[in-house]
Write a protein that binds this DNA or RNA. Structure first.
Lengths: 130, 130
DNA sequence: CAGGATCCGGGGGGATACTG
DNA sequence: CAGTATCCCCCCGGATCCTG
């Protein structure tokens, strides 16, 4: 929901379809969260353990945005201690093909990333040293 | 390339395959850039026009990162005025299925995004007003 | 045309403490 | 357990000016 110059504004506010998708899953942790929700629902602290690098604050914020956008459903069980479960909505499930592709790509090429970065880092070093 | 607690560190530094993918295309504009490069190479100012919301600074930065990661190739033509073309590398082309899925989803559901947000905004308003 | 350099403000996001 | 609330720092990213 950003503002663009009127001249280039598409009817839906995006200049290309990919932008709309990024608007939904572009958050730093959203795709990872969705990945963990594909097979079954998860509790809050379960997600924290599954995504060790995320802080509890950020997890909350990202989950709230996903909920706002109708992607995930938040189920509260009235009991002590509290119990909250997060799951994909029907709308959220339409994103599975994307997450699935991301998973496939990551599985296949995660190793190549470090290679590529080491190569470019080495090249840069050479250049700076003359 | 972030640091995680050693206990949860995967061999490749990611806690799940999706994280690796996000590490590459997670930048604010990267997927949109790749989308515009799928069919053919583009010049710098061409991309600026295609992505009106991006500043020239951000476009440069995102392109540099994509180049570093071996996703896009930067071809400089020695001439005045300068001419630079950006295109997908072979490695970059392996991302096409993901971008393609993003495109499909955005095309199908861009409209539903505003609906969902208006609904939750309305619900929120009701709640705050009692 | 394709950027590099610099200045600068706002907010993204971490750490910590508290709560129903 | 599943969050809120608060403080605060850093850096992302916009605006502007300059260059080969």
């Amino acid at each position: 929901m950003k503002k663009y110059p009127a001249a280039c504004e598409a009817p839906d506010g995006y200049s290309c379809p990919v932008e709309a998708t990024i608007d939904i899953i572009g958050g730093k942790w959203k795709s990872v969260i969705l990945y963990h929700l594909i097979n079954d629902k998860k509790r809050f602290n379960e997600l924290r353990r599954l995504i060790p690098a995320v802080t509890q604050r950020m997890l909350t914020l990202q989950l709230r945005e996903l909920e706002r956008d109708g992607i995930v459903c938040r189920t509260i069980y009235k009991q002590v201690p509290p119990k909250v479960e997060y799951s994909l909505t029907e709308f959220g499930k339409t994103l599975i093909p994307i997450i699935s592709q991301m998973m496939n790509w990551g599985t296949s090429y995660a190793g190549k990333i470090k290679e590529a970065r080491q190569r470019s880092a080495a090249a840069e070093k050479l250049e700076s040293q003359g």
